[in-house]
């Protein structure tokens, strides 16, 4: 047999084994579904969901379709992940600067914070933020006043916002807070946890990128009469940023994926909606394949974006 034919035979065998395994799984799964009396198909998406969401960016009632529940879940994921990405980038870059700066106090503080936030599991951090926000804060009628119209209490953060009668600052009224906009403790805990965890990683990535530059770069900049700060901002940072871009994008994508930990503290993100719907309908395969498909699409989009950013940051640089 020629090597070419051997290769063809091997491929055919691999393909057959793969398809055979897939078929076997499909048959066993179908049998089990039949045994347990679970129907399959995506028709449940158009039926009323029958469960309520703790909060939703998209207006959602239990009578709405399950499809809308999934959309609301995705909207909730984006509602925490998009501001999370921007804040994590800002906090991470600032912390990275502090970590690399020449002030020993600030450097020590930044380094300790990075150490703590990176080495404690995110889930544990989320649970702590949630406990602090729901158990240790005062009740709504004794809310902490952080500024004009800004109140923090067990029922979340109240902010001035446009209501039915135009712009209205929230006020303590009776046992609660009225007016303005409300951010729930679940949302705040998610945002805080995700931002601080990712920011610690971004700060470290940035530092690693700067330290990986040849030391001659800094020395040359100093020799040309730049101050250390100028050398850092004008010579080191632009080069390091290019090297840090791929790992930083992957950190930001991780933030999206980590938003799925919302299920542990009851913030209704996509995964937690899928979990609820799965328990209600028993359609495990359908619910989980929706989650997987959405996350794969997000990953693809992030890969494409990162590719474009990289291409742009390389433009005009000598090879």
């Amino acid at each position: 047999m020629t090597p070419r034919n051997t290769a063809r035979l091997a491929q055919a065998l691999i393909l057959a084994a793969f398809l055979g395994l897939a078929a076997l799984l499909a048959v066993t799964t179908a049998e089990h579904l039949a045994q347990r009396g679970i129907r399959s198909g995506f028709d449940f998406l158009l039926e009323p969901a029958g469960f309520a969401l703790g909060e939703s960016l998209l207006a959602f009632e239990p009578e709405d379709t399950t499809l809308r529940a999934f959309a609301a879940g995705l909207a909730n994921t984006l509602r925490v992940a998009v501001p999370g990405v921007l804040l994590a980038l800002a906090v991470g870059v600032l912390t990275g600067f502090a970590r690399m700066g020449d002030n020993p106090l600030v450097r020590g503080l930044a380094s300790a914070a990075i150490d703590v936030f990176r080495n404690v599991p995110l889930l544990l951090q989320l649970l702590a933020w949630y406990f602090i926000l729901t158990d240790l804060l005062p009740a709504a009628d004794a809310a902490l006043r952080l500024g004009p119209g800004v109140y923090l209490s067990k029922s979340g953060l109240a902010l001035p916002w446009w209501g039915e009668q135009g712009f209205e600052p929230p006020e303590i009224a009776g046992f609660g807070i009225e007016g303005g906009a409300r951010l729930t403790p679940e949302y705040l805990a998610m945002l805080l946890g995700l931002v601080l965890y990712s920011a610690a990683y971004i700060a470290e990535t940035l530092r690693a990128a700067v330290e990986a530059l040849p030391p001659g770069q800094r020395l040359a900049a100093l020799a040309m009469g730049m101050t250390p700060r100028q050398a850092f901002l004008l010579v080191l940072l632009p080069q390091a940023w290019r090297a840090a871009l791929p790992p930083v994008t992957s950190q930001l994508l991780n933030l999206f994926k980590n938003a799925s930990l919302a299920v542990a503290i009851g913030y209704p993100d996509l995964v937690s909606v899928a979990g609820t719907s799965l328990n209600q309908t028993g359609r495990a395969i359908e619910c989980l394949s929706i989650v997987i498909a959405v996350y794969l699409l997000l990953s693809l989009a992030a890969a494409a974006l990162s590719h474009r950013l990289e291409a742009r940051s390389l433009r005009g640089t000598p090879r």
Binding site: K257, A259, S260, V263, V271, A274, L288, L296, S299
Partner: peptide, 13 residues
């Protein structure tokens, strides 16, 4: 790509 694209929570589900 599948395993790296999804969150661990989804894999655990």
């Amino acid at each position: 790509e599948l395993a790296r694209g999804i969150p661990l929570v989804a894999a655990l589900f």
